[in-house]
Structures are given as structure tokens and as C-alpha cells.
């Protein structure tokens, strides 16, 4: 039994191993040496070329900026909105909640043409706002926050109200500190989500100077000469941050993904 799982684990890890190894082979050896599962010659030359011949560093920085912007904005919208849905009664609340849940079923491919026209008309094509804002109101994100906020003790909030705290003080000083674990989880999930996203940034950006990593890697592999070595080096560097994050925050990521379904999109 143990042996079976060892084999399985090797099979599942192998493509990742292969990506790293292929990125480290000397130039032109990716296919020639493909039978060398443990390579005899390693070289960091591909990585040097990746940074010298391609705007990889720019893409990496773009990814960090865009991912950060998206995650912060998404978490802000979902935390405030989730609090309103969980702790206040107001007209049309249930209707709105159902609308948000139904919107979760809409495939993004229905929206690509209309959103594309919208960002062009709004002058948001080729901008970070254009890449971030249309994705930021995540239905599953607000649902996740609402579920968490429901568990916050009403009596604690009411006691503060009796003491004369304003609603905004209550939110800042009581709700936010109590929701910290959920906020952290959502922040991580949003980061992974944008970091790995291809479709929307691909539509928003035409200028390679603005690409995030996913779009940049897509460009690398589709150049006139398939540059597998550069692509593998680029893919490796794009994957490493997520894996590092995962090893520090494994429990949160796995539990977060298990409760939000297919990821936060």
C-alpha cells in the first residue's frame, strides 16, 4: 500500500520536477537529454537569458503589483459587503443575496465580449484598473466572508453600541479583529487566483510591458521558435512563490479551497 502511494506521489510530482530540470539543462539540450531523468549537466544560463532577452522581470513585478491590488480590493469589498449581509437587516437583502449567488454560476466566457467593450469605452484597456476592478466583486468571496461573520457574537456588538460606539468604530475595532483569520484566508486565495489567472489579463493587455506572468509565459511558448527552455524557466519562477506560500500556510489554503469550491473565482 505504501509503495503504491510512493509511486503515485512520484507520478504527480514528476511534471513539476520535469519543469525545473528542463529549465536547468544547458542550451539546446531539452529534448536531446530528455532520457536523462537525473541530468548530468546543469546550467543557470537559461535563467540569465530569461532576464536579459525577455522582459521577465517586468512581468514578475507586474504580477506582484496586480495581484496585490486585486487581493486588497477584493478583500475590502468582500469584508465590508459580507459584514452588511451577515449582520444587518435591510430591504431586498435576501433578493440581493440570491442575486450574488446566482451570479456565481455565470461563466466568465459569457462576459468577455461585453466587458471588453466596456473597458475600452471607459478608457481602462491596457491599465491595471482594467485588469483588477472587473474581477474584484467576487460572489464566492462575499459568501465566504458572510458565513464567517454570521458567527460573530451579536451581544458583543450590541454592548459596544450601548457604550456609544459608532457603527464604523464597531467595524474597525471589533469586527475586523474578529474576522482576521477569514480575511487572511481570503487574501491568500485571491492572491493565488490572480497570480494564476490568464484569460482576463490576456484580453486587457496588448502591450508586453504590462503583462502579468501568466500572459508573459503564454507569449514565451508561442514565439516563432518554441523556446521550451525559457518557458520552463519562466514557469518555474512563476510557480515557486505559490509553493513557498503553500508550505507556510498549508492548512489555511487547503481548508479555504475546500470550503470555497473551485477556488474563489
Amino acid at each position: 500500500m505504501f509503495a503504491i502511494f510512493v509511486c503515485l506521489a512520484i507520478i504527480f510530482i514528476f511534471p513539476l520536477y520535469w519543469m525545473v530540470i528542463s529549465s536547468l539543462r544547458p542550451e539546446g539540450r531539452i529534448f536531446v537529454d530528455a532520457m536523462e531523468i537525473i541530468p548530468s549537466a546543469l546550467s543557470l544560463d537559461t535563467y540569465r537569458r530569461l532576464f536579459e532577452e525577455e522582459p521577465y522581470l517586468t512581468w514578475f513585478i507586474n504580477s506582484i503589483t496586480q495581484t496585490g491590488g486585486y487581493a486588497l480590493m477584493g478583500v475590502f469589498l468582500c469584508t465590508t459587503g459580507g459584514y452588511a449581509l451577515a449582520k444587518f437587516r435591510f430591504r431586498y437583502r435576501n433578493l440581493l443575496f440570491i442575486l450574488i449567488l446566482v451570479s456565481q454560476m455565470i461563466p466568465f466566457h459569457l462576459l468577455i465580449v461585453s466587458l471588453f467593450l466596456m473597458i475600452i469605452q471607459m478608457g481602462m484597456a491596457e491599465t491595471y484598473q482594467g485588469a483588477i476592478v472587473p474581477l474584484a466583486a467576487s460572489p464566492i468571496g462575499i459568501f465566504f466572508m458572510r458565513q464567517y461573520m454570521l458567527a460573530i457574537d451579536d451581544e458583543m456588538l450590541n454592548a459596544a453600541r450601548v457604550d456609544g460606539a459608532s457603527e464604523y468604530q464597531i467595524f474597525w475595532h471589533i469586527v475586523l479583529p474578529n474576522a482576521r483569520p477569514a480575511i487572511a484566508t481570503l487574501l491568500i486565495l485571491f492572491c493565488i487566483d490572480y497570480w494564476n489567472n490568464l484569460l482576463w489579463p490576456l484580453i486587457v493587455f496588448r502591450n508586453p510591458e504590462n503583462f502579468p506572468l501568466a500572459v508573459g509565459i503564454k507569449r514565451l511558448i508561442d514565439q516563432y521558435r518554441q523556446q521550451y527552455d525559457l518557458t520552463m524557466a519562466g514557469s518555474t519562477l512563476a510557480t515557486v512563490p505559490v509553493i513557498i506560500l503553500f508550505f507556510f500556510l498549508r492548512r489555511q489554503i487547503m481548508e479555504g479551497l475546500a470550503t470555497t469550491g473551485t477556488g474563489v473565482k
Binding site: 504527480f12 519543469m19 489567472n197 490568464l198 510557480t239 509553493i243
Partner: peptide
């Protein structure tokens, strides 16, 4: 955890890696 790791890679990376592995002279 090991079997879960692929779920963290971006689909772009999954695509590029398998394009290499499935190539005519690929692994």
C-alpha cells in the same frame, strides 16, 4: 500534500509543462 501540489500551479504552467512532456520527442 504531494498529490495536491499540482492544484496550486497555474493552468498556464500545467499547459506548458504538458506541452513539453507530450511533445513528439518529449518525455
Amino acid at each position: 500534500v504531494l498529490i495536491f501540489l499540482p492544484a496550486l500551479t497555474s493552468l498556464v504552467v500545467a499547459g506548458t509543462v504538458f506541452r513539453l512532456i507530450l511533445a513528439k520527442d518529449g518525455f
